[in-house]
Design a protein around this nucleic acid. Structure first.
Lengths: 158, 158
DNA sequence: ATACATGCAAACATTTTGCTTTGGC
DNA sequence: GCCAAAGCAAAATGTTTGCATGTAT
């Protein structure tokens, strides 16, 4: 349950430094059989630095992509990273697919303006964790995770 | 909170008959300035009959589309129906956009298999309603609604 | 040395639009 | 009769793949 005197928007108080998160991700990528290339590091760094989900265009056109890697390269990296559970795919109402880092001790829900498309990470205690475990048991589905987004009109667009 | 002795899957016990839902939707469409065409009725009927979200291809190739309406026609109807709050768009992890009827007294959450793509409506009491109202107040966003999906591997695919 | 990663270009899937004709009100 | 809706076809958008070449291990 959310307390009204707390901000509902993201406070960006990461538990781990960007460097730690990167090292961990690179380690997991290596274990997953990926080679340590410039493009891989760039993509991870960009995702870690972003406080929003990013899509393929965002990443492949990012200033942070020092290697200047091709769209196809970035695409293939994203697929591999997702398969290995290092990043997560999100289906926001945009035509494109969004990605975020998947950090163990953090879960993100989003608040999205249907007018301007602004995506805001919510700093809330997610209320569906218990439910998720129940559904896992009751349905026989394995490795459950969830996606929760709130849509509405932001103050500017309303 | 879900009780373990209850099924977690949809029981299809609609509170209103399909005809009632259709009449209500047509009425709201009319109020929204839409003309009562064959294609409109077909699209609504198809959505009402479906116990799953449907995408543009599903609808425009459906047997139920007696009028044989064009893809573009169906597309434009879907846009108009969504603008008027009669149907809802969903961003499932598929490449396409899905739609469902938006019924006042029903809220749908989904369980989706990341292996075979099967979409299952969940018959649960959604735990985020209260949170939604809090976020609405705290964020200044208007007309909030949410989308909640659980992803995982179904028994067959696991 | 080998297998994986990359770049480029082309193929795909799906959505979206322009324009003319049709049809509901 | 007027304006919205439909039909057809083409454009736009974003993703995905094939293949020759480069590069990490």
């Amino acid at each position: 349950m959310l307390h009204h005197h707390h901000s509902v928007t993201c406070r960006h108080h990461d538990k781990h430094s960007a460097q730690e998160v990167l090292d961990e991700a690179l380690h997991r990528a290596k274990d997953g059989g990926l080679r340590r290339t410039r493009a891989l590091e760039d993509v991870l760094r960009i995702l870690i630095a972003s406080h929003q989900p990013l899509n393929l265009a965002d990443i492949s056109e990012s200033k942070g992509l020092k290697s200047g890697a091709d769209r196809a390269t970035v695409y293939r990296l994203l697929v591999k990273l997702e398969e290995r559970g290092i990043i997560r795919r999100l289906g926001l109402h945009d035509r494109s697919t969004y990605y975020t880092m998947l950090e163990h001790d953090r879960h993100d829900d989003y608040l999205i303006c249907t007018g301007c498309g602004r995506i805001q990470r919510l700093d809330i205690q997610c209320p569906v964790e218990a439910l998720e475990r129940d559904i896992e048991k009751a349905s026989g589905f394995k490795k459950l995770h969830h996606e929760l987004e709130f849509y509405g009109l932001c103050p500017k667009c309303a």
